[in-house]
């Protein structure tokens, strides 16, 4: 967390306190990458096109956060010179089963047939 806050340019005082910027959940994407691994999608073919965050509760250093991602929409265009797939991934974040944030993003997968 300190490294994140330091990279983002927070003051020394903020870097060392126990607050967590809400946007830090953008870094909790391990499960998203697991989805790409399961779907056998090379990371270097991915491009982020849209993203929405809804921050519901403040989180603190020491909180245990559980992420639950799901592929909520798939669009394909395979019969073209540049076939592609778009995936919409919605992830919910929980602390002690309480929903604290939700994010949804569209991922563009280039060269979908290669």
């Amino acid at each position: 967390m300190r490294q994140f806050k330091s990279l983002m340019g927070y003051s020394e005082e903020k870097v060392h306190d126990d607050t967590v910027p809400d946007i830090f959940i953008a870094c909790l994407r391990e499960a998203d990458f697991k989805i790409f691994e399961v779907l056998d999608i090379d990371l270097d073919r991915l491009l982020h096109t849209t993203q929405t965050f809804d921050f519901m509760k403040t989180i603190f250093v020491g909180d245990e956060i559980v992420t639950r991602p799901a592929v909520t929409k798939v669009r394909t265009k395979l019969n073209s010179a540049n076939p592609f797939v778009t995936l919409e991934i919605t992830t919910e974040y929980f602390r002690n089963e309480e929903l604290i944030a939700r994010t949804s993003g569209t991922i563009f997968v280039r060269e979908a047939l290669s």
Partner: peptide, 23 residues
């Protein structure tokens, strides 16, 4: 962070609830 800093300066009573974007 840029928006959050701006809000803090403008009025610390406010925070970002939603942020959406299209790259």
């Amino acid at each position: 962070k840029a928006i959050d800093d701006f809000l803090l300066e403008k009025s610390p009573d406010f925070r970002i609830k939603e942020l959406s974007s299209k790259f």
